[in-house]
């Protein structure tokens, strides 16, 4: 248990330099021209002296660059995420955006993992059979596909031609609601983006689980367990599967990062008003405080997810705790 705690502590300590690096990169990106106000002004058409003064105050333009960085970081740590150039404080918006993103990402993660594991095991147990070839072929197409393109195809087929499901947004702004009520309306909006996201991340998990499972089934301990009389079922689903899944847990953490990072394109395709969509809107209109805040929030979410899943990994694999 002490090993586990110190492991957790080390993981949290590692998150600190990552967080600092991220804040520096984010700050540098938005200050790349030397003067963020000039950058922002590229996107603003009616420039009054008042807006200019407000912008200079917002970005602490009177200070040297490193002081600006610390002022910005300190604001961020105090929950002051800055002022959107177009629509009020960022802090008041970021929670609903995050919730909307997670409403899509978490079910997609659970579904793709839940379907991907049994499918990968199935495929590995029948290596080189017709069903295995079908699964692996589909999966390699899945990882070769831009998620948002599959989204566009889904919209063309299921929304525009068949009229079964809505093509944009997370809810209908006004009646008539899909399938009669507000909850069913939300569900109708969720189905297409969720299916697309699940299908594409499913492909990754199937390939990983299949490869790890094939590897595990070849290990000496599987041979030894079978030779000493354990049932094939027990050997496959207890020993081999646990060994195959354990390393995937950390990859779930990393892929949560890439899922979140993939959110801009997918959310834009479905006009899904989450962090990714708002990031694209803000970056396009050069609303820098929003861009900075979303970048930081996404990174924090990824770091937290990684620590959580590393903890799960350490619980599953006793060897991790000592190294």
């Amino acid at each position: 248990m002490a090993g586990l705690l110190s492991y957790l502590l080390r993981r949290i300590l590692f998150a600190i330099p990552v967080f600092i690096t991220v804040s520096i990169i984010t700050f540098l990106a938005t200050n790349a021209s030397g003067n963020p106000v000039e950058l922002v002004l590229l996107g603003i058409h009616n420039r009054t002296p008042e807006t200019l003064a407000a912008l200079n105050a917002e970005f602490h333009m009177g200070e040297p660059i490193y002081t600006r960085y610390f002022l910005w970081l300190s604001d961020f740590m105090h929950g002051n995420l800055g002022q959107s150039l177009y629509s009020g404080t960022v802090a008041s918006k970021i929670l609903p955006w995050t919730a909307t993103t997670l409403e899509l990402q978490i079910p997609a993660l659970l579904l793709s993992f839940g379907i991907g594991v049994p499918l990968g095991v199935f495929s590995a147990k029948r290596q080189y059979s017709k069903s295995d070839v079908a699964v692996t072929t589909t999966a390699i197409f899945g990882i070769s596909m831009p998620t948002f393109w599959l989204g566009i195809m889904a919209i063309i087929i299921f929304s525009l031609n068949l009229h079964w499901l809505p093509s944009f947004g997370a809810i209908s702004a006004f009646p008539p609601y899909w399938w009669g009520s507000i909850p069913s309306d939300a569900l109708a909006h969720l189905i297409l983006p969720l299916s697309v996201l699940t299908l594409v991340s499913l492909a990754t998990y199937v390939r990983l689980i299949r490869a790890n499972m094939l590897d595990a089934l070849r290990q000496d301990y599987v041979l030894g367990a079978r030779a000493s009389g354990l049932s094939d079922f027990n050997v496959t689903y207890k020993h081999a599967l646990k060994n195959a899944i354990t390393p995937v847990v950390t990859i779930v953490g990393l892929s949560f990062g890439s899922l979140l990072a993939g959110a801009p394109a997918l959310e834009t395709t479905f006009s899904w008003p989450g962090l990714g969509y708002e990031f694209v809107v803000a970056a396009t209109s050069l609303d820098l405080p929003v861009v900075q805040a979303i970048t930081m929030i996404i990174t924090i979410m990824v770091l937290v997810a990684n620590i959580g899943l590393d903890l799960v990994y350490a619980l599953l694999d006793p060897r991790v705790r000592i190294s």
Partner: peptide, 8 residues
């Protein structure tokens, strides 16, 4: 080194 399952 590999004859026993490392996770149990």
């Amino acid at each position: 080194n590999s004859s026993l399952d490392p996770l149990f």
